[in-house]
Design a binder for these strands. Structure first.
Lengths: 415, 415
DNA sequence: TAATTTAATTTGACGTCTAAAATAATGTTG
DNA sequence: CAACATTATTTTAGACGTCAAATTAAATTA
């Protein structure tokens, strides 16, 4: 149960839904904000006036829209989030290196930059030395001081701990429990949060339809690894420590194929790029997984071989599909979602995977449970991890900082 | 995102938390309500005055508390939920029949009654004819009209659909998709809801500590079947159609042991009473499961045999533990909970099950994920299903009916 | 009996919302 | 082109709910 309600809560909540409407649907007129949020025109006036006064919002200076000639009356003036209200950095840490994206408050990308970094053999200290330097350089290149940045949102591949601010385990690192948030906050004095990359994909998918979805969905990522982002009652679910939905390392077969995480039988060991490749090449399930990503060209060739009649390759994809299908069946039994979204480069081979996947779901879970669930595919080309990290970070800022209103001056001390 | 906020929301929310405080902690003084809810004494006065006026609450007429002789000042007068504000019926449908419990608004049980009913062979119509008659008799016995009952909360064993108000699949019925809510609402004109029994156990566990827990927990029921209630961010999670957490029918081994649900490899086929018995008797995993519950005495004997050195029996319990352990490992990978509660008669044999269970969890999920989770055992004797159903139903009434305030009179039509 | 202590209510101010009225900015029409 | 119509936005006045502070209530203590 949430706590007590008072006029403070009312103000925060209503400011929040106004910001959220602009965040999801872009610039709009005050009337439309009213329709969107259910607030009266009077309240919208009050709220927008305040937000504009705080420089969080601005009135767009544009010529009236004449596209509909039958339109009468006073023309609208649209308002939008003020791009200069804040800047954030989204930082993606993956097996191939770092990606930095500088974004303004309205969500517009200002610059982005990729830096490859061979992280696997690095210890935590060395990694952080590099990372902090790369961030500093990125700031310098954009003529920014650290205090110009309101938040740094990190998305990392693997198991992240959002409470400790660490990467608990990742295929990009030999070492475990690498602190990330601490060093960044310490060096730059900027608030920082970390999340799992698959959760950020889920965030991206939700952002794509304006966070209008409010059911339970699972977003599956297939590629160099297998991940999942869970959306529960419309909100991306993070679990006790932000490490929820480690679908790739959910056990498929007890004592089964060996996985990068040094365990046996994980789903990923059957359905990731390297798992599929291993099966296709008829190597034993127990043969050790590689420490680096499989070359995408190799996977492309394998797909085509499977389509061209290579029986071993086709069987490898079917095996992957069966593994994912059983994983989904188990997930469905637990969570009874209404939607499953398949995403990531692995969906390119969906034609090869899907029959076995669907058969496994049918085999693995009662009809009553799976009948409702819709399976969709998300576009694979867009960089959902970055998009999602940006959306999540900005939404977080909206709710924590900008919904509250301006700092109250502490005048008492003057008396 | 929730909708807009206004003074209406404020009133509902604050009335709600006041009701909730009394619901969880019982009668208390207005001062304490203030401390509990964070509301000012003035607001508490306003709210309690209104609730008392609406006969939802009442002031207790009791002698001042003299237990602490050093206590000075005006004595408190405690208030409580008015038992006569409403009555509810909790109805439990299980393989052994129906159980009806009449409860007043303060949560006090007025009467309860068990009726055994051989439901398995019944069709939906016959079952409902019996059920409606049993409810009618129960009302008559307590000299109640249907309209004296504010809500009927049903807990059923198996897969329930809270949207359609049906039992989608249950071991108590041969037939599928049995409508329950519809017939009851139609005949008695009383609002009715249905939920899965394991979810109601979870509700009971949460109620037991005053709904103060707000993390993610899984409550596992072990007995004639295997069930799970999931608590996500402090709320019992029901999924898209109320059929969440069908842990017992989550697949354990593809193409594995045959289950009552007519599928193969479900966890329940290894870890329920009949599954354990089947293994202990060295019958094949494929041999058909029984259609009725295993006699508790048989299970008790089996436990003692296992403890007394019967190797087959001990192995059966270990096999059950391993199945549950892998199921939990998979659940942990998906949901990263901080708490697992084991409940139900099956926990009596926990000594036999636990080693294999813990080993399986270790084998089945990365350390980073399982390190946080605490495994507890709930008392097995209390009837958690009924307790939980009552708690859930009353809380539902609190939030839907009694938080709103009295009906507004529609005076306009008089003009 | 008067002072003290704690509980509960009353009073007056404050913040936010809303409906209705007023104002603003445009198009339409005779 | 002036008056009217239309749509957007702001202003005004009133409603509702909270809270701090003052007041009243009901007990104990001295």
């Amino acid at each position: 149960m949430r706590g007590k309600a008072d006029s403070d809560l009312v103000r925060r909540q209503n400011r929040h839904i106004v910001l959220e409407a602009l965040r999801s649907y872009g610039p709009m007129a005050r009337v439309d904000l009213g329709k969107m949020t259910g607030l009266s025109p009077a309240s919208i006036t009050t709220i927008t006036t305040q937000l504009i006064g705080e420089k969080v919002m601005l009135e767009l200076d544009e010529a009236p829209d004449r596209s509909d000639p039958s339109r009468r009356g006073r023309p609208t003036t649209r308002v939008n989030l003020n791009p200069f209200a804040a800047r954030i950095i989204a930082l993606k840490i993956s097996i191939s290196g770092l990606e930095l994206v500088l974004v303004d408050f309205s969500g517009e990308i200002i610059t982005r930059k990729k830096v490859s970094l061979a992280t696997y053999e690095m210890g935590a200290d060395e990694f952080n030395r590099h990372t902090l330097h790369i961030i500093q350089t990125f700031l310098d290149e954009n003529k920014l001081e650290a205090e110009d940045v309101a938040h740094i949102g990190v998305a990392a591949q693997g198991v992240t701990d959002s409470v400790l601010g660490t990467i608990a385990w990742s295929p990009a690192f030999k070492q475990r429990n690498i602190p990330v948030v601490g060093p960044i906050e310490q060096k730059f004095g900027v608030r920082c949060t970390i999340a799992n990359d698959a959760n950020m994909i889920a965030e991206g998918v939700m952002a794509a339809d304006g966070y209008s979805y409010d059911g339970t969905a699972a977003v599956v990522f297939m590629g160099y690894g297998v991940g999942m982002g869970l959306v529960i009652d419309g909100k991306v679910y993070h679990g006790a420590t932000g490490a929820a939905a480690e679908f790739g390392h959910m056990n498929h077969i007890p004592n089964g194929a060996s996985c990068r995480c040094s365990r046996a039988g994980c789903l990923e060991a059957y359905a990731s790029d390297y798992g599929i490749l291993r099966s296709a090449e008829n190597r034993s399930d127990q043969s050790p997984p590689p420490s680096s990503a499989v070359d995408p060209a190799v996977m492309l060739a394998l797909e085509n071989a499977a389509r061209g009649g290579d029986i071993d390759a086709a069987a490898a994809y079917a095996k992957a599909g069966r593994a994912i299908g059983f994983g989904l069946a188990r997930m469905i039994a637990l969570l009874n979602p209404d939607r499953i979204v398949l995403a990531g480069p692995g969906t390119r081979a969906l034609d090869l995977i899907e029959p076995a996947l669907r058969a496994a779901i049918e085999e693995g879970v009662v009809e009553a449970l799976r009948a409702q669930v819709k399976i969709e595919t998300a576009p694979i080309n867009t960089d959902m991890i970055v998009t999602g990290t940006i959306a999540a970070t900005l939404r977080y800022l909206d709710s924590t900082v900008f919904s509250n209103g301006p700092m109250k001056l502490q005048v008492e001390s003057l008396l």
